[in-house]
């Protein structure tokens, strides 16, 4: 569906070298700190910035050969950009209808009503949540094959986020070969939605794992100095010095549960794994 091979982009104080893949029928998450390279990756995929090297293939086609017709198969949400605030939702329906051959105005209007989006109000007068809902709605209402969503839930409250995620799940269920690439700061969104996760740090992918595996097999071991000394470190990915001793990240939780019953083992969450992957050191 989407394949990125050594996508390179260099700025004065930042360089990106990213490889990742989104499989058909899958929701893939891209997580990382601010400035890690998420938005740069998204912009390169969409042709908004020029690549310095590498290759991006979308729906089996090189991005450089992507046509207007091919672009109709993409649905896009960008965190810092959207429709002109001077338009209203009625205008958006009309514009999208003229841009996408497969735009479904009935679906759009129905969902807009469900999301509580007024048709005649200027977008600049919308709340942050309403703007975010409109962006996602515009992306899912033309039967896209691939959604590229950069921080679609930013600024949303819990209920609104849940509504949006529900909308994305419905989108995936309608056709089995649809895919989503999504980035978010809210790890709970990704934990419940994504099939696999890529972690990006300082422009490099530092981890790729199935979400189920990450949540079941990754764990934090909290050990004192003597426990640390006796610990088998072959399955330790990162470690960090703490007041009590060491905090260690493993992807073999069961192994340590069985062999070290006396040490404190906490289940890994996406947030904790990110923190350890970034702040921890390799053993």
């Amino acid at each position: 569906m989407l394949k990125i091979e050594h996508l390179k982009k260099t700025y004065d104080n930042f360089s990106l070298d990213c490889s990742m893949e989104v499989q058909p029928g899958c929701v893939t998450g891209l997580v990382g700190q601010n400035g890690a390279g998420k938005s740069t990756t998204f912009k390169a995929i969409l042709g908004l910035i020029k690549m310095d090297g590498g290759k991006v293939t979308i729906l089996g086609k090189d991005i450089k050969e992507f046509t207007v017709k091919d672009r109709q198969k993409l649905g896009v949400v960008l965190s810092d950009s959207g429709f002109s605030g001077y338009l209203d939702v009625k205008d958006v329906v009309s514009v999208l209808g003229n841009l996408y051959e497969t735009f479904d105005p009935l679906f759009f209007r129905k969902q807009a009503q469900k999301f509580g989006l007024p048709m005649n109000k200027k977008i600049k007068e919308f709340s942050t949540g309403m703007k975010a809902k409109l962006k996602v709605l515009a992306a899912i209402s033309h039967r896209a094959k691939l959604l590229v969503l950069d921080e679609p839930t930013v600024g949303l409250d819990v209920v609104a986020r849940d509504e949006l995620l529900e909308g994305l799940r419905d989108f995936m269920e309608e056709e089995e070969d649809r895919s989503i690439l999504i980035s978010s700061h809210i790890s709970s969104d990704l934990e419940t939605l994504c099939d696999d996760l890529y972690m990006i740090h300082e422009g490099r992918i530092i981890l790729h794992e199935d979400t189920d595996v990450l949540l079941s097999d990754y764990a934090l071991l909290k050990v004192n100095e003597s426990q640390y000394a006796a610990l088998d470190k072959q399955h330790i990915l990162r470690q960090k010095k703490e007041n009590f001793g060491y905090c260690c990240l493993t992807n073999q939780r069961q192994y340590y549960l069985e062999n070290y019953p006396k040490i404190a083992i906490e289940k890994g969450t996406v947030d904790e794994v990110i923190t350890m992957m970034i702040r921890g050191v390799e053993k």
């Binding site: 017709k69 672009r71 993409l74 950009s81 959207g82 841009l99």
Partner: peptide, 21 residues
Amino acid sequence: NYDEFDNGNAFLFSLPITRRG
């Protein structure tokens, strides 16, 4: 000007249009 306002061009050029168009 309207297109550029609030970084609107980024979204605009992710839609099915070309720069030439």
